[in-house]
Design a binder for these strands. Sequence first.
RNA 1: GGGCAGUUACCAGAGUGGCCAAAUGGGGCGGACUGUAAAUCCGCUGUCUUUCGACUUCGGUGGUUCGAAUCCACCACUGCCCA
Length: 425
Amino acid sequence: MNLIKELTWRGMLQDIMPGTEEQLNKEMTTAYVGFDPTADSLHIGSLVPILLLVHLQKAGHKPIALVGGATGMVGDPSGKSEERNMLSEEELNKNIIGVRSQLEKFLNFDATLPNAAELTNNYDWFKGISFLDFIRDAGKHITVNYMMAKDSVKKRLEGDSGMSFTEFTYQLVQGYDFYWLYKNKNCKLQMGGSDQWGNIVTGTELIRRKTGGEAFAFTCPLIKKADGGKFGKTEKGNIWLDANKTTPYQFYQFWLNASDSDAATWIKIFTFLPETEINSLIVTHDANPADRILQKKLAEELTKFVHGENELEKAKETTEKLFSNAKASVDSLSVEDLASIEGIVKTNYSAEKIKAGVDILSFLAENSIFESKGAARKMLQNGGVSINREKITDLQMMVDKNNLLHNKFILIQVGKKNNFLIAVE
RNA sequence: GGGCAGUUACCAGAGUGGCCAAAUGGGGCGGACUGUAAAUCCGCUGUCUUUCGACUUCGGUGGUUCGAAUCCACCACUGCCCA
């Protein structure tokens, strides 16, 4: 399989350095992608770089995932309009462990393979390099003029928040990573998001000047929504790959909610389905967009990829229960149905209080569905709250045992998509 | 070290003594329409609260004033220029 051709039709190729394809065709090539340990889990924004590594390995090359323990301490100015806050070392270490364990799920680390994946942490080599060593070894080979010409730097110089020396140095630090991997692991290729292009090129430049060797690079486009919105953010923040932070159900829902135009682009990027299959899916989808064939397939494939078959099934079941009969009365949900709903917010509530009756505002606030009664009131007035699928507009309403489903549950919806299940016992 | 400009809510950005919880735009949330899309339209968006009202906000601390985001002093931070 030709990696470059594969990535091209999938729309995963933005910039590519001349000679990269030849290099890949010539021999098994080692390539790396860097991941930022800014949080203890990766989110779906990191999914594309991960997929680059997976595709690379599938094509018979050797992937290295680099966790930026050192670079994380510096802070990448790319795409940032302001100086970043520094993470404490402790936080950083926690994050590195989290990120590392996730990457392990997606790549094949079987050491018997010639192209087994590898994980590295650039802190391992940076910790032994002194500042003086660094500015002599790396700094001497790259001019400030060169570094200033980078987009990430230029933007910050033109802006009005300035840039610290620390962040200015970032590209050199990242460049040194590439050089180090080139020298020690025969890594000749770096991949990443297109915002990384500048940093990556500094690396190839450093390699060329220090060793006279040749290194290559390509980047993938940054994923955007068709309406220009930020990808991967919802009202609840990032979509994480960690099931504890974003449940598989929420994860599944995120993809299911993709717009038509996004779904067609995303299914190529985020799934491994072959071109012919995707094309026919698109045709089917266009014939009847309301069925959302693309969204469903996208959501299925990805949830399976990230969380596994089991979790996918559960996510689909929950979706089925909460949405497919949304118009039907709640009575159609059995005790088992309700008890086994997974992935949504569940809370317990005291049976005594229900027996006595609670006013709706207190009830919503006490169950942390809203932060305060005031917030609950506003939402109620906006017509955004349903109890057991019936829209509530009466602010005085009392919640009591008549509202219990199967004597035990209360199903609350805020908006169309936010479901809460209260178990009363 | 010197000079100049600035710091307002999630972001951008108006407001330069009372009509300011603070314009406007973006973002976010909710509603209508739909397909759990997109586009469009409508509402909400400091906190708490029985929509009364109370409380806390305009970098920080003090002050002037009946009254301060607005005036004064000092401090902090940021940017630009000079050394």
